[in-house]
């Protein structure tokens, strides 16, 4: 590597010789590049798609599919950290990531992410099926090119449209079994797609300063916290009916129906508290509570589907 500065991504931050790590990166630094917390939710939702899908898949192939989906999601995280290294360094929430901390050079993160991305798609295609591999490639490409490179720094709708990337995993799991995209798998996609904006905007309400500092046009920065609260409420109202769609298609049974009702009411209550409390520590607390609950909410919804189908507890509602 020469002493000449090189640009990373489209941003103006230059990486000089001084940015090359002073010490050898550890295994845990590379693992952190994969965004393990995001990866765990991806593995879980993909696993639910895989189990709920009609048909059979050999356990070894199911494991391989989940492994490829996990690695592909991790690759997206690494590529995202490579591109966003300049703003990550300025934000409190992301400043301790391996690239801003100087533990891994941006170029290494790019090579690592690209290798894993291509490898996961090719292995999934060769060992499971190509429709699932194509969806995984779409997910990685969408997260990197559409969300990270195009939308994130340009529009407050970044998280609305970009959220699709996080919604694909159950469709990939489903396609691993059936080899196709079906209405039921699109419904699983829709649940996560509609869940993402209120989930992420709740976080951005109390992290608005971070985004403002780096000129990322998150909704609270561009439209203000009150409008963000209104949008959280609207999207929450839209989300709840979508979570009942699996019942209409026969995918969700009686237990799922009850759980989605209970969880939905709790979600709406917390979203309403965010809407009502607009200043002071109470407002921050309300946003934090909604953010934390939203993670549990999605996990519990998909876990219920998993239990119904995995343990044979599915009792149809006779809607489909």
């Amino acid at each position: 590597m020469s002493d000449t500065s090189v640009d990373i991504g489209n941003n103006s931050a230059a990486i000089s010789r001084a940015d090359v790590p002073a010490t050898e990166p550890s295994v845990s630094d590379y693992f952190a590049l994969l965004k393990p917390r995001v990866m765990s939710l991806v593995i879980f939702t993909a696993g639910v798609g895989l189990i709920v899908a009609p048909g059979d898949i050999h356990p070894v192939l199911a494991f391989t599919a989940l492994l490829c989906i996990a690695v592909g999601a991790g690759a997206s995280g690494a590529l995202n950290m490579w591109y966003d290294a300049d703003i990550d360094a300025e934000m409190q929430r992301t400043a301790k990531r391996p690239i801003p901390m100087g533990k891994i050079a941006p170029g290494e993160a790019l090579g690592f992410g690209a290798t894993l991305a291509i490898g996961s798609v090719v292995v999934l295609g060769l060992t499971v099926n190509w429709p699932a591999a194509a969806l995984l490639a779409l997910t990685i490409g969408f997260y990197l090119f559409v969300y990270t490179m195009w939308l994130k720094r340009r529009t407050p709708l970044n998280i609305v449209i970009g959220g699709a990337a996080g919604a694909f995993p159950p469709m990939i799991g489903w396609a691993a079994v059936t080899g196709s995209v079906e209405l039921s798998s699109i419904v699983l996609f829709l649940i996560i797609f509609m869940w993402t904006p209120p989930h992420f905007w709740a976080l951005s309400l109390y992290r608005a300063n971070d985004y403002e500092r780096v000129n990322v046009p998150m909704l609270p920065v561009v439209a203000g916290p009150d409008e963000t609260r209104r949008q959280i409420w609207i999207y929450s109202l839209l989300l709840i009916p979508v979570t009942f769609l699996p019942c209409a298609l026969g995918m969700g049974g009686a237990i799922y129906f009850g759980m989605s009702g209970l969880l939905g009411m709790s979600f709406l209550y917390l979203a309403w508290r965010v809407y009502r409390h607009r200043s002071g520590p109470v407002a921050t607390q309300a946003a934090r509570k909604l953010f934390r609950f939203s993670i549990f909410y999605l996990f519990a919804l998909f876990a219920t589907l998993l239990v119904e189908h995995g343990l044979g507890l599915h009792v149809g509602l006779g809607w489909a």
Binding site: E24, P25, V27
Partner: peptide, 16 residues
């Protein structure tokens, strides 16, 4: 120069 810690990290990475 490689510090002892650097060498340890490289070894762990190689094993991984």
């Amino acid at each position: 120069e490689w510090s002892d810690e650097d060498i340890k990290r490289r070894r762990r990475r190689s094993i991984a």
